[in-house]
Design a protein around this nucleic acid. Structure first.
Length: 454
RNA sequence: GGAGGAGUGGCCGAGCGGUUGAAGGCGGCGGUCUUGAAAACCGUUGUCCGUUUGCGCGGACCGGGGGUUCGAAUCCCUCCUCCUCCGCCA
């Protein structure tokens, strides 16, 4: 939510900045409601002040044994007026809030301006595309050949956009999640947190999914609970309506969770494979920081997410989303896009954002600065570190061998019982190729690049 | 699911219709004392909104919402949460 005082004082600036997102916002309803609210407040509070004084007076009179019936009648009439005004006020305030809740965040000044994703800026690239001397397969074909992805049975269980992983596929999924969590908690200083996967609507308002994006959510029991679309929701709301201590900031959490998304507007998009599912696993990184630190925190958070790809040896690029491509609540977003040779494309595997005080204001997350009195809103940030399913996809496609088996990255082997090759009936009994294949060379080269030796 | 009990400021805990934003204690902050520290003593210590150049003034908040009343932390209704006992259960 945008600060209504800021909005009151800088309407032109806000209109202009929001326009860069590609949607014209008319602030007139705000200005009308805000003015109405303040006028009503002044009037009503004046009446309340009088009522308080008169009531105290009545108390004194009665203590002295005097008659106060006349005064009481007068105050009763005043009370009626107050009641009517309070009702009007409540209506105006709820309209005002409804309006404010639908305004997106103001893009940070460093965000490239543009109407859509074509204006995104690639800020850096790591590693390089692996070369193949055969035609690389998309992951859904590999997964089927290896018997580790079973999409037809998944649709028997739940429908399209669900997945079943079996054998080494399930193991790889688990290994990836564990690897990511271990990296972030042991080396990057995040505290692991395990939360409910269903939350109430207050949480969804807090992080900005509601009221505007209800169609993207799975709802349970008539809206009493929502399945989380990302762990960002429960983890950010962990500190809803709290005043944090400045010395505790920044607070950093890592959380592994399934994510549930309706994918309402994406019919016909990414219909094959594991790219776009109603349910997928993700390790989410969430930070609460002081406002002055939030952009350097965004940088380290992004680097923390990148580290996962580096250690896996996966080539990727980092894109700064343009104003037109920015999510509703974000002030700035850096996407990590991993190379998928089976699809000859870069695909988003992580999205790291600074929400500044947009979510904190909605969710009431503040801290007490030592240097000044009172409280301020914290800045909230989060990013995938990473989307586990898409990471599995990237491994299958990037490290596939000519015989359709898959080379498991070094760092995952301890999590997979030392398994090097994808467990595959297809490759069983076949000659295992020279492990120093070209693919491994690229993989190793990427690792060397990372350690500064390449 | 059944029967009871409880939700007050950072924490503990009084208040049960009239200067109570709320006694007292702990904690925090500032000070006196001390070479320093501790102890002791003194002072101070919530949030939000409106208004004002500012000092300040006003309003709201005692789990959430609603009601009774001239006046509610205090009475009534309702919802939520927690605790105890019984039942059921991974």
């Amino acid at each position: 939510m945008i600060d209504s005082r800021f909005l009151r004082e800088n309407p032109d600036f806000v209109t202009e900045r929001l326009a860069t997102r590609g949607q014209a916002v008319d602030l007139k309803p705000f200005q009308r409601l805000d003015g109405e609210r303040r006028a009503l407040l002044r009037e009503t509070e004046g009446m309340k002040a009088r009522r308080n004084a008169d009531s105290a007076e009545i108390g004194k009179l009665r203590k002295q044994g005097q008659d106060a019936a006349e005064r009481m009648e007068a105050v009763r009439a005043l009370g009626e007026k107050i009641r009517i005004n309070d009702e009007k006020l409540k209506e105006v305030e709820s309209q005002l809030e409804d309006f404010l809740l639908t305004l997106p965040n103001i893009p940070h000044e460093s965000v490239p301006e543009g109407r859509d994703e074509t204006a995104n800026e690639i800020v850096r690239t790591w590693g390089k595309k692996p070369g193949f001397d055969f035609e690389p397969l998309p992951h859904w074909e590999l997964g089927e050949l290896l018997d580790i992805i079973d999409l037809s049975r998944a649709s028997k269980l739940a429908g399209s956009r669900f997945s079943v992983l079996t054998g080494a596929g399930a193991l790889l999924e688990r290994a990836l999640g564990f690897f990511m969590l271990d990296l972030h908690t042991r080396e990057h200083g995040y505290r692991e947190v395990h939360t409910p996967f269903m939350v109430n609507s207050e949480c969804m308002f807090g992080t900005g999914q509601l009221p505007k994006f209800e169609d993207d959510l799975f709802q349970i029991q008539g809206g009493q609970y929502y399945l989380i679309p990302t762990a960002e929701v429960p983890v950010t709301n962990l500190h809803r309506e709290e005043i944090l201590r400045e010395e505790d900031l920044p607070i950093a959490y890592a959380s592994f969770s399934p994510c549930f998304r309706r994918e309402a507007g994406s019919h016909g998009k990414d219909t094959r494979g594991l790219i776009r599912l109603h349910q997928f696993n993700k390790v989410e990184l969430v930070k609460f920081s002081r406002p002055e630190d939030s952009y350097s925190e965004l940088e380290t958070l992004t680097l923390n997410a990148e580290e996962v790809l580096k250690r896996l040896g996966l080539h990727y690029q980092v894109a700064a989303l343009s104003t037109g491509d920015l999510g509703f609540a974000a002030a700035k977003t850096l996407d990590l896009e991993v190379w998928l040779p089976g699809q000859d494309a870069y695909r988003e595997i992580s999205s790291c954002s600074n929400f500044e005080d947009f979510q904190a204001r909605r969710a009431g997350i503040r801290y007490r600065p030592a240097a000044e009195k009172g409280t301020r809103f914290v800045h909230t940030l989060n990013g995938s570190g990473l989307a586990v399913g898409r990471c599995l996809v990237a491994i299958l496609e990037n490290f596939q061998q000519e015989d359709c088996s898959v080379l498991v990255p070094e760092v995952l082997r301890p999590y997979m019982g030392g398994l090097v090759w994808g467990d595959s009936r297809l490759s069983e009994g076949r000659r295992i190729q020279d492990p120093r294949s070209k693919i491994q060379k690229v993989c190793l080269q990427n690792m060397l690049n990372f350690s500064g030796l390449g």
